[in-house]
Design a binder for these strands. Structure first.
Lengths: 289, 289
DNA sequence: ATAATAGTGTCTGTCAGACAATATCGT
DNA sequence: ACGATATTGTCTGACAGACACTATTAT
């Protein structure tokens, strides 16, 4: 990390503009869970995964919904840029975030070459945010299609992602192709139809995949949960992300270590009250040397 | 993806230069395995993971070793830029690659703000490449240190990464910190000492971690193996990446589905000949719907 | 009692770790 | 026979899927 005299001399002569540069943005997929009340007072409210979108005020894609983002601040780190962006634009603070993927297709943005560093943001905040709207996410995947080839195989799957609001429905359809031949593993996502700006539906898809995969081997889900929750709530959240139903007994066994019971009970009517639990943050610390 | 008339009008007026832009590079961690011959004719050669480095001809970090990289081509996709870079610079073609992480610290590069999109490249090529040198990788991790805090915990670990060549030894030491507090999970990598250019030792660390994690749930390792290999060879490669010894019988059971025996035997002297296997590319196709 | 949800117990099959046993070669 | 490596067999404990069973509440 120490510079030589050569280096210092070089720096004086260095002109910043010899290379053409792309624009670089940060795009944030912000997810949360919302309770869906139902009219049966004895039934538990259902859980629905939601995404935060903003309506674009300017071209390109004026009036289209997009994921909140910003051009990066050359004077600041990526994570600070992201935090400032979310606090200023929509008023969101204190959230979980991780880098997702960097999208750099030539034709992503009609203006100029734009590289987008996508982040996954998780929050449990239920308060209203400014300048944005939450959309319920419906995810519908068709069966995988397989073809064996000479050097490997091909796999493809159509996925419909519908985002709904009280006012708006955005339908999107993508074709996820995976091709394995010799050394290359090529994953391409073709947008069949999208009512989101740019290639943001791709970014959404990456976010859902990441979240789903991370459920198994991390504690990310607790960033989407309130401080205290019942195990049924937690299970409903798992099911929403995994798109599959889990068996109660097995689920409880599986997450037993990750949660701690607290002395609070949900006082719903008509059935045995359920106990509240909280995240046991340090459940795995003993297992690692 | 269709543009409105508004959008088209906007594009005519759009000036590309209103925002300051960073430079964007692609940096490639290229790994392979090398056989280490030993003087016991009855013993199997050992395996060693190697990385491809180039000696920088110009400032900054003139004469330092660095991972092969390039500024991105605004007219081409990231993956094409990467392929062209590796073919032109060092003559490498036909390899496995995947995006690793995007590094964007303010102080990464002394010249100007540089965003680096890092890729992991795996090859089984043993031929000589141009303009680059292969270094053996020695990875030495100390024990994790834990501290429980109010809102979570902290974890830290010192790691020594030594890269050796017949002419050169590059010693590097990093401190990997992980802090969990409330929502944030902050992973910081502090460079204690590095004899590589820029923050490339960080990129290396990310690559090793990714490779190690992917061993368990993917077939990436076969991109590092020759077409035909013995199970002992394969096991040695696993052990190099995982930094732990495996039991033979268990290993064979675990990878049984992923490989196919071929009618070839290794004719070493002094013991039962070992059978060659090849990657069974489509072993998992039946399991997915 | 009943409907609804909360939570426990247990059977079974799979699979990983540990390690013993067998196979095959050159000397 | 011996030394070295290759390969198979088996015991055990952990754990996941499936499902039956018990517990608690308001009506």
């Amino acid at each position: 990390m120490n510079l030589s005299k050569d280096d210092e001399k070089f720096l004086e002569l260095y002109s910043d503009s010899i290379y053409d540069k792309p624009s670089v943005t940060i795009d944030n997929v912000i997810l949360r869970f919302r309770d869906i009340e139902n009219n049966n007072y004895r039934k538990h409210p259902d859980k629905k995964l939601q995404i935060c979108l903003i309506k674009r005020a300017y071209s390109p894609y004026k009036d289209c919904y997009a994921v909140p983002g910003t051009f990066i601040d050359l004077k600041d780190s990526l994570s600070n840029t992201l935090k400032k962006c979310l606090e200023n634009k929509i008023g969101l603070k204190d959230f979980y975030f991780e880098q997702l993927y960097t999208f750099g297709d030539e034709q992503r943005d009609p203006r100029t070459r734009v590289i987008s560093i996508a982040y996954l943001i998780l929050t449990n905040k239920q308060e209203q945010l400014k300048n944005c709207e939450w959309f319920d996410i419906d995810f519908q995947a068709s069966k995988n299609e397989f073809v064996l080839t000479n050097n490997g195989y091909k796999k493809s799957q159509k996925i419909k992602i519908t985002l709904t609001n009280k006012n708006t429905t955005l339908t999107n359809e993508i074709l996820v192709k995976f091709e394995k031949k010799n050394f290359e593993e090529i994953k391409t996502i073709k947008i069949i139809k999208s009512e989101l700006a740019f290639d943001h539906i791709k970014i959404l898809y990456f976010a859902f995949e990441r979240l789903k995969n991370k459920l198994e081997y991390t504690d990310v889900i607790f960033n989407l949960m309130p401080k205290y929750f019942t195990l049924t709530e937690l299970k409903l959240c798992f099911e929403q992300i995994l798109h599959e139903n889990l068996l109660d007994a097995n689920f409880r066994r599986k997450i037993a270590d990750k949660v701690k019971p607290v002395d609070l009970y949900m006082n719903e009517k008509g059935h045995r009250p359920s106990r509240f639990f909280e995240h046991n943050v340090s459940w795995n610390l003993n297992n690692i040397e």
